[in-house]
C-alpha cells in the first residue's frame, strides 16, 4: 500500500502545487465529509492537503462590495461575525444547520460546496444570495458562481490542482432579505430531505423587485429556479404570487425516492418550504428597510 501523506501548506501556490502533483490528493478543510469517507473506504486519498494554515483561508473580511469568507472558515465562526449575520442571515443559518455544534466547529461552506452532495445545506442559500467562489489553481485565479461548483453528486467543476480559496457574497441590497429552511425528520443531525434558499429585494412599497430561489436535495445538484423567482417579482408576495412560485418550484423539482424520502414528498415539501422561506426573507427585507 502506498502511504498517504499529510501536508500543511502555507500559501495558495503550495496548495495548488500539492494538488496538481497527485490526482489522489484531497483538500482537507473541516474534514467532516472527507474523514467520514476515508473511514468508510469511499475515499482513499494519496495526500491530504490541510488548507487551514494558508494565510487568509480562515476569517471573514467585509468591504464595500460585500464579504469575502476564507474557504476554511468553520460554520460557527460565521455566527460570530455580526456584520455577515446581519447582512446574510439565511446563509449563516444554513451553514449552521449542518450537523451538530461539534461538526459546525469544523465544517466549512467550501467543503459543503466541494463535497457536491445534492443535499448540502449551505449551497441553496449561497446560490440564492448570488455567492461566488474564488478558485485558485496552477494556472491562476478565477471567480465562479457558487451554482457552478457542483456538477453531479460528488463531482465538481474544479480542474486538477484547483481549490476554492474564498467565498464571496455581495453587499446586501437595500431592503433585501434572505432565508433558508430545510425539511428533516428530526430537529437536528439530519441530512436535508428538501432545502430551499431564497434571497429577495422589496421596494419601498413592498413590491418584490428581485428574487432568487434555490432548491436542495431535489435534483443531482442544487437548482436555481428562475421561474420561481420570476413569479414573485412585481408582486407584493400575495397568495397568488406565492402559489405561482410554489408551482414553479414543484415543477423544477426532480427528486428521487431514497432512504431519506419519497420523490412525491420531496416535491410537495419544496413548495411548502418555499412559501415559508419567502415569508421569512420578506420579513427580514421589511425590517431591513
Amino acid at each position: 500500500m502506498p502511504q498517504m501523506t499529510f501536508h500543511t501548506p502555507a500559501t495558495h501556490d503550495e496548495v495548488a502545487a500539492l494538488l496538481a502533483a497527485s490526482a489522489g490528493a484531497r483538500v482537507l478543510s473541516g474534514g467532516t465529509d472527507l474523514i467520514v469517507q476515508m473511514r468508510s473506504g469511499r475515499n482513499a486519498p494519496s495526500a491530504i492537503i490541510d488548507v487551514k494554515q494558508v494565510a487568509g483561508m480562515i476569517g471573514v473580511r467585509m468591504s464595500d462590495s460585500g464579504f469575502a469568507i476564507g474557504a476554511a472558515t468553520p460554520c460557527t465562526a460565521l455566527l460570530n461575525d455580526s456584520a455577515l449575520s446581519a447582512a446574510w442571515p439565511g446563509v449563516v443559518e444554513a451553514a449552521n444547520l449542518i450537523g451538530s455544534v461539534q461538526v459546525r466547529n469544523r465544517a466549512t461552506m467550501a467543503g459543503n460546496l466541494c463535497n457536491a452532495s445534492p443535499a448540502a445545506d449551505s449551497v441553496p442559500a449561497l446560490i440564492a444570495a448570488g455567492a461566488t467562489c474564488v478558485v485558485v489553481g496552477p494556472s491562476g485565479t478565477r471567480e465562479v458562481a457558487a451554482s457552478d461548483i457542483a456538477v453531479a453528486p460528488g463531482k465538481t467543476s474544479l480542474a486538477p490542482g484547483e481549490f476554492v480559496a474564498e467565498i464571496r457574497l455581495p453587499a446586501r441590497p437595500a431592503r433585501g432579505g434572505d432565508a433558508y429552511l430545510r425539511s428533516i425528520p428530526r430537529t437536528e443531525m439530519d441530512i436535508a430531505v428538501v432545502g430551499v434558499g431564497v434571497a429577495l429585494v422589496l421596494d419601498a412599497s413592498g413590491t418584490c423587485t428581485a428574487a432568487r430561489i434555490a432548491l436542495g436535495a431535489v435534483a443531482p445538484t442544487a437548482l436555481l429556479v428562475d421561474e420561481a423567482g420570476a413569479a414573485l417579482v412585481g408582486s407584493k408576495l400575495d397568495d397568488a404570487a406565492l402559489e405561482a412560485m410554489a408551482v414553479a418550484v414543484r415543477a423544477a423539482a426532480k427528486p428521487i425516492d431514497d432512504k431519506r424520502g419519497t420523490a412525491e414528498y420531496r416535491t410537495a415539501m419544496a413548495g411548502v418550504l418555499a412559501k415559508r422561506v419567502v415569508a421569512i426573507a420578506a420579513a427580514r427585507a421589511r425590517n431591513a428597510a
Binding site: 428530526r186 437536528e188 439530519d190 441530512i191 431519506r260
Partner: peptide, 16 residues
Amino acid sequence: MENPGFLDYRMPVASD
C-alpha cells in the same frame, strides 16, 4: 441495510 449509521437511522436527539 441502507442506513447502517446513526445519521440515517435517526434515534431521538435531545432537541427532539
